[in-house]
């Protein structure tokens, strides 16, 4: 498919009628306030959120009572129970991965529910692992690795949650275009092709500006950390365009303006590239280690029951 440069988002305009007070002002509307928007984005379901903390509190109460009447260690009845509960929870957490791979089976229900189990169940799993070990360092090599990998997996999962909650808001509120990650190289190529066609018969100053300053950045998608801070013009191109525009005749300014729009689109694509790469990249920290954890956990269970 031939790439088409993405369209800009429609932003509700500030109506003059609204500005004049004839209509109610935007601040009084039912649209979400910043705080509500933030809260809603981070806690999608209060039921799950508060339910999780209630279960955490219950677990801690049980553990405290348990610890008052005897020592908890992995080999004790209570310690073993916590271990079994953690394992069951781990299996439940793993179902999310299965759900994503079995999309064809419609009867499995909503993916969202599996993700809630994955997130809250994963956090609870770590708590149960700590309870299983009696909140102490593990003794053996295998159990130490299990303990460390559990922390790593849950920690990287939490990092993923942070990224998944934070970066989409940067992408949607800071940028006006929407871009498919896989199509980014094609889109950049298309912008470069159009830009080159535009400057071909443009003024010498524009051609020079394009060749020296713009062309290198149009060779492919670029990553800039500044996009994490919501920056839109990481190269300070606006000033360059303004300065050059002041020196050009009207018809050349139109070309420069078109070129500027292309560069702005490219910068938005770069922002998408940077942020979407992070949205995908964190999985490398999470998934492979989770697989190792599954294998080691299986070995741990086998060894406990065998010996």
């Amino acid at each position: 498919m031939k790439p088409t440069v993405p369209k800009k988002a429609y932003r509700p305009r500030a109506s003059r009628a609204a500005a004049s007070g004839v209509l109610k002002t935007a601040g009084q509307t039912t649209k979400r306030s910043g705080a509500t928007r933030w809260a809603n984005t981070w806690v999608q379901s209060p039921n799950w959120f508060f339910g999780f903390w209630i279960v955490v509190a219950l677990c801690l109460v049980i553990y405290t009572l348990n610890a008052l009447f005897g020592q908890v260690h992995p080999g004790s009845a209570w310690g073993l129970s916590y271990g079994i509960a953690a394992t069951i929870l781990f299996v439940a957490v793993f179902l999310y991965a299965l759900r994503r791979r079995l999309m064809k089976v419609r009867a499995l229900g909503r993916s969202w529910v599996y993700l809630q189990v994955h997130v809250y169940g994963g956090a609870l799993f770590l708590l149960l692992v700590f309870m299983h070990t009696g909140f102490q360092w593990p003794q053996g090599v295998l159990t130490w690795w299990l303990w460390a990998l559990s922390i790593w997996v849950v920690g990287s999962g939490l990092l993923g949650i942070v990224l998944q909650k934070w970066l989409p808001t940067l992408l949607s509120s800071g940028l006006t275009t929407e871009v498919h990650y896989d199509r980014i190289p094609d889109l950049v190529s298309e912008i470069r092709r159009r830009a080159e066609a535009l400057v071909e018969d443009a003024d010498y100053a524009i051609r020079t500006f394009y060749r020296d300053d713009l062309a290198p950045s149009l060779t492919g998608p670029e990553t800039h950390l500044a996009y994490y801070l919501g920056a839109s013009d990481v190269n300070g191109r606006s000033r360059q365009f303004d300065a050059l525009g002041a020196m050009l005749p009207a018809e050349e300014r139109a070309k420069l303006s078109e070129l500027r729009e292309m560069v702005q689109t490219k910068q938005e694509i770069d922002a998408h590239y940077t942020l979407q790469k992070a949205l995908r990249g964190w999985l490398l920290l999470h998934v492979p280690v989770s697989v190792v954890l599954i294998v080691l956990l299986g070995f741990h269970i086998f060894s406990v029951w065998y010996w």
């Binding site: 984005t41 064809k104 989409p168 992408l171 949607s172 949205l279």
Partner: peptide, 18 residues
């Protein structure tokens, strides 16, 4: 809702697989 969408494309994959 792009405020929430992580661009994971599971929606597209779900559609394709069915």
């Amino acid at each position: 809702d792009l405020d929430v969408c992580t661009r994971c494309d599971d929606c597209v994959r779900g559609c394709a697989s069915t």
